[in-house]
């Protein structure tokens, strides 16, 4: 028996998300009196695999080989499923991000394993196996019972703390070779998001809505984000209008995020917007309308004109940073 955690890498490196997943998997393994094993697929930078060992796993498998430089869901799912069988995994943990969402369902069919998607806590019980997950776009949670011997969990980002624990895990390097004919997905072009902080990784997010009035008013908002080491975001109308890029749109039809702090500036707080941000630990709202629904979701609020408040906020943060 074991708990297998799939840790995605970005150009050969792991992120905080990977360590969150490993910490989570280790705790689940403890609940089941078994060990956790981390699995990485694709070439890693040297020394990178070892880092997973700091979060409670007893073994690290680093699988690499030809044909794995493209994410082909079918190929990846087969590899992960094969390791799950080999290691006798009764729980497989993945991230609830784009890649996790692409792979987990394919694994589910391969392993005939029920999925708990968007789980945000440790299992509520292991006998029967019950998880706590997002439902109704963050407006509710569900207790879901998984009735299969193998279970798959996709963990919501930023919902579990890192837990450091070194069990002296060894790295097992495995060569997997994939026949070129099996890889159906061919990459034509890649556009990386450059050095910007990713919205889904950010601990602080500064977001603007239609109340920002014009694409030309974004300067102080971006400056605030830069000062705070935050990512920038926006409401749907803002990206629909082309004031900001689509990748910044948060909400039910955009990105679902859970930062520690979310600034909603000139955003009314429609249900569909809140669906993407209501898991933020703290929400700060700045809005001219004291009755805007965003103030019901926020813990801190300023009733005022964003264009007047933002420069003052920027000054206040500069002062804080200079201390």
């Amino acid at each position: 028996m074991s708990v297998l955690v799939y840790t995605e890498n970005w150009d050969g490196k792991f992120k905080k998300l990977s360590f969150e997943l490993v910490s989570y998997a280790s705790k689940v393994a403890e609940m089941l009196n078994t060990k956790a094993i981390a699995l990485s697929v694709g070439k890693l930078e040297s020394g990178e695999a070892e880092k997973l060992g700091n979060y409670g796993v007893s073994k690290i498998i680093s699988a690499a080989g030809e044909g794995l430089n493209v994410l082909d869901n079918q190929v990846y799912a087969k590899i992960i499923a094969d390791f799950a069988v080999k290691e006798g995994a009764t729980v497989v943990v993945l991230a609830n991000n784009n890649v996790g969402k692409a792979l987990a369902p394919r694994l589910s069919v391969r392993l005939k394993a029920g999925i708990g998607a968007g789980v945000n806590k440790l299992p509520v019980s292991t006998e029967p196996f019950v998880v706590h997950k997002r439902a109704y776009s963050g407006n509710a949670f569900a207790h879901l019972q998984i009735n299969t011997p193998v279970r798959i969990i996709t963990l919501s980002q930023n919902s579990f703390e890192l837990i450091e624990k070194n069990m002296g895990a060894a790295v097992e390097n495995v060569n997997v070779s994939v026949d070129a004919s099996e890889v159906k997905t061919q990459v034509r072009e890649v556009q990386k998001q450059g050095g910007k902080i990713l919205l889904t990784d950010a601990e602080i997010v500064v977001s603007g809505g239609r109340g920002m009035k014009s694409p030309d008013n974004w300067g102080p908002l971006v400056e605030l984000a830069d000062l705070l080491g935050a990512a920038t975001a926006c409401s749907r109308p803002v990206s629909d209008e082309g004031w900001r890029g689509h990748e910044e749109h948060t909400g039910q039809t955009g990105k679902i995020i859970a930062p520690n702090l979310y600034f909603a500036i000139g955003i009314s707080g429609a249900t569909q917007h809140l669906a993407g941000v209501s898991s933020s630990k703290y929400i700060v709202a700045i809005n001219t309308d004291k009755d805007a629904p965003i103030f019901e979701a926020a813990q801190y609020g300023i009733v005022g004109d964003a264009q007047k408040v933002l420069p003052k906020l920027v000054e206040a943060v500069k002062e804080l940073k200079s201390k």
């Binding site: 029920g114 999925i115 407006n139 299969t148």
Partner: peptide, 11 residues
């Protein structure tokens, strides 16, 4: 079916 919802909870 492999899973079933037992109950819901409001945030």
């Amino acid at each position: 079916a492999l899973t079933g919802i037992i109950s819901f909870e409001m945030p």
